[in-house]
Design a protein around this nucleic acid. Structure first.
Length: 561
RNA sequence: GCGCCCGUAGCUCAGCUGGAUAGAGUACCUGACUACGAAUCAGGUGGUCGAAGGUUCGAAUCCUUCCGGGCGCACCA
């Protein structure tokens, strides 16, 4: 519909140029938007407003001229000029209703597109180090990241989900010491407990399993416990595998699966860290000072230079980070999106600067970042601190157990990532209708119920009859649903382009609302076969679109509630 | 002090990259099940879009400066 209107406007502009009303060299960007207010018709264009100045005409006069020059079309019932010079289009009912046929025909593919053209995209998200179960912040990252991946897949990109972690750093050493302490029957309250040790109860479980000689299988590794409490290396290997498995279980419960687990240590093993250093040095972007080697990141927009090799000879974290992103580029990912907590935002400039200093033709904006702000968790109105060491933080699995996977995913992905989020556990776990995901799912279940009812009444849905009678969908509420359905593909495209999964959530709430209103205003199960089937078809189209959108969010679409 | 993000109804948040009279949910009032699921719907109350300037036909949206909140500012990750 939108495309139709755009091309109508285009030919009108062409005609006006021909008549000499508009200058020939004018190249207007024709824009048609769905209206917010029914009084403004179904679609509106601001073309006359945008062109008034270059054309040297008053907006309303120009709008008049454009409307006069518009070709006839069956799709348009009437046009109006309103406000400062908007051209409002009222869609012909049967033309608008054709969206139902389109949705039913496309089915699961409605809203999908090929704009990605198979481009290889990598999304790195969660990337938690294996020192504890995933917390709510990771959950937000997982919900947003996975939804982004689903959006990218739906728009024709070739997506790789990647999880990056470090199994050898200082944090992991602390983990091993903590497990060892537990294995020697110390508790976090003992004087000898490691200073920076992890205090969570899970440490004791790791220690028990280690002493018992258990074998753990994670997605990317398998380790059998040595059982010797003095063998710190064995303890570390086992603990890492144990927590990787724990995180796998968290992710599985959340419905998120990764294609690649990438180890920071592999960058050292493969020589990529050394190669990166050599390139940076050879390119002359480094200097030595205070016994350390620095990278001159200020040449690439950073506000100060950064140490890359410490005085003790080891590297700061950002060097392997640069090597890692070079590796991503070399693997053929022209678009890379890093979803991570905003508390690490300072790495962006550094990593990009490092990549530029390699002078290998990597674009300046590489990689893309999607940052999510902090999640504050409250219980009984009191903040629960997010700390792995405290051991009292809310995990992803806590939330899933308490409020369910669907609600957790929806909550965490339904808000803009760059605003802070308060997760009120009491509210979220109360199974009340405050929960917006129920609202959307209920709309879906209602259509299913309607269809069951039609079957039971011996009046099953007649597809071909319905499609021939779509023009009967002419109530205000039905038109609202039709217009909403027509916007879905654009929402998917926009959400993908802007990397904003919350747009999908917002759309689903709007569509569900439109449907519920329509459902209450217009009775579907009427005696007239034509009307009933046309309305069932509208319900089916709404159900299909709800299902497709929910699927993008990784949320189920239940047939009954 | 410097950098990034945020500030929209009492509360939780949308606002489709500049459009028309700023919208939902929740809460609070009033109504609708002898019609398809009332986990729903219809209506009402509720706003200096943090503040002040600027850009233009037009600003919650873009620019500047303040105010307030969060997060960063390591030879930690």
């Amino acid at each position: 519909m939108k495309d139709t209107l755009s091309s109508l406007l285009e030919s009108a502009i062409g005609a006006l140029k021909h008549q000499g009303v508009l200058p020939d060299d004018l190249q207007p960007a024709i824009r048609v938007d769905a209206t917010r207010d029914k009084a403004h018709g179904d679609y509106a264009s601001n073309l006359a407003l945008a062109l008034a100045k270059p054309a040297g005409m008053k907006p309303r006069e120009l709008a008049e001229a454009i409307v006069q020059a518009l070709p006839e079309s069956d799709a348009v019932q009437k046009t109006e000029i309103a406000g400062p010079g908007f051209i409002n289009f009222f869609a012909a009912t049967d033309a608008a209703a054709q969206i139902v046929a389109r949705v039913l025909d496309a089915g699961d593919t409605f809203g999908r597109s090929l704009i990605g053209q198979g481009e290889k995209v990598q999304v790195e998200f969660v990337s938690a180090n294996p020192t504890g179960p995933l917390h709510v912040g990771h959950g937000r990252g997982a919900a947003i990241g996975d939804c982004l991946c689903r959006l990218l897949e739906a728009t024709g990109f070739d997506v790789t989900r990647e999880f990056y972690y470090n199994d050898a750093g200082v944090q992991i050493h602390n983990l091993a010491l903590s497990v060892q302490a537990r294995a020697k029957h110390l508790t976090p309250d003992d004087a000898d407990w490691p200073a920076d040790g992890y205090r969570g109860d899970y440490i004791a479980r790791v220690a028990d399993d280690y002493l018992a000689g258990h074998t753990v299988v994670a997605d990317d590794r398998e380790v059998t416990a040595g059982g010797d409490p003095d063998d710190l290396d064995a303890i570390r290997d086992f603990a890492v595998a144990w927590l990787r498995r724990e995180q796998d279980l968290d992710l599985k419960a959340f419905g998120v699966a990764f294609d690649v687990y990438f180890l920071e240590s592999s960058l050292y093993d493969s020589g990529k860290v050394d190669a990166t250093v050599k390139t940076l040095v050879d390119n002359g972007h480094t200097f030595d000072e205070d016994g350390a080697t620095w990278l001159r990141t200020t040449s690439f927009g950073d506000d100060k230079d950064r140490v890359m090799r410490k005085r003790d000879g080891s590297f700061t974290y950002f060097l392997p980070d640069v090597a890692y992103h070079l590796d991503k580029w070399q693997r053929g990912f022209t678009t890379v999106i890093n979803e991570q907590g905003a508390d690490h935002h300072s790495t962006i400039t550094r990593v990009r600067a490092g990549l530029q200093a390699l002078e290998t033709g990597i674009p300046e904006g590489f990689p893309d970042y999607v940052l999510h702000q902090m999640v504050m968790v409250t219980r009984s109105g009191v903040e629960v601190k997010l700390s792995k060491r405290a051991g009292s933080y809310v995990t992803v699995r806590d939330l899933i157990d308490e409020v369910g996977r669907d609600a957790t995913r929806f909550f965490l992905a339904a808000r803009r990532s760059d605003s802070q989020l308060t997760f009120d556990i009491d509210l979220a776990r109360s199974q009340s209708n405050d929960n917006p995901v129920y609202y959307v799912q209920y709309a879906h279940a209602r259509v299913c119920s309607m269809l069951r009812r039609a079957e039971d009444a011996g009046q099953p849905f007649d597809h071909s009859l319905a499609l021939s009678q779509l023009a009967l969908l002419d109530n205000d509420q039905e038109k609202t649903v039709l217009n909403r359905l027509a916007r879905y593909p654009e929402v998917v495209e926009n959400a993908t382009k802007n990397r904003e999964p919350q747009q999908v959530a917002q759309y689903l709430l709007d569509l569900a609302g439109d449907f519920h209103s329509c459902y209450n205003a217009v009775k579907v199960m009427v005696d007239d076969d034509a009307t009933r089937n046309a309305r069932l078809a509208l319900g089916l189209a709404a159900r299909q679109t709800l299902r497709n959108g929910l699927d993008l969010m990784g949320v189920s679409a239940p047939e009954e509630m």
